[in-house]
Amino acid sequence: MSLCDAEKTFILHGVAENFRSDGRDREGYRPIEIETDIVQHAFGSARLRLANTDILVAVKIEVDTPLPERPFEGKIEFFVDCSANATPDFEGRGGETLAIELSNILASAYKSPKTFNLKKLCILKGKKCWKLYVDILILECGGNLFDAVSLAVKAALFNTKVPLIKSVNIDGDNVELDVSDNVFDCERLDVTNAPVMVTVCKIGDNCVVDPNLAEEQCSVGSIVVAISQEYFSTVTSIGIGSLHAQTLCSSLELGQKVGIRLNEALMDTLSHITSDQDFGFLK
């Protein structure tokens, strides 16, 4: 789909007027729908829908050995799968670059100990730790992937239950872990500082968040900011296009402002989820 000049002009003027074509202002998000705990075989899961973008995230946990240079820390890894269900463009190796980009940004955003404390995942120094596999499945792709993925990941981590270990026995080099028999005995992860990502798109002289597909086409450059509390955990420019330093600063400000609000809204929704809600695809 390519837009004609008149349509682009319309969008451009709309952004300048702070009234976008669907009635949102520059900082407005489209309604988001979220549900958690929908994959039985995972330790935590979430599904998120933002307009036409649909993301399913599941967290699996395994016991692993800590890295020798970081004996006190557990591990977290992100895998993104751009399913050909989303768009035929992802068929074969089509989605690979996007998947790598997404998982790298996530890894970089969760890297700092201030955003996500991996030390909590250590079981025995240098010997045993938990490793979180965060699998992200893109079911439908309708723009603004970065924001949707980061929100879904945060929700899935919020939902994740780490098994409780009752005792650790060391016998020479062998380490035996005694996991609690009760499956409901588990720990929640602390995700208060986990980052949310906001894509800031420059259209004309102004910046907008949550662009739809038509707006993405009018953009002259965009950046993704990952916000953890009011700090930046990752900023990266995406797509072709360069920005002036001044524009970059103003988009950083906008991204920070919206990121904080987005995080509040997400945490608020997540905290209101009760375990007896009728979630799930068919539950």
Partner: peptide, 15 residues
């Protein structure tokens, strides 16, 4: 052009 054609940050940094 005084344009920043690429920008990347990681860690934990305030505005």
């Amino acid at each position: 052009q005084e344009q920043l054609c690429q920008f990347y940050q990681n860690g934990y940094v305030s505005l």
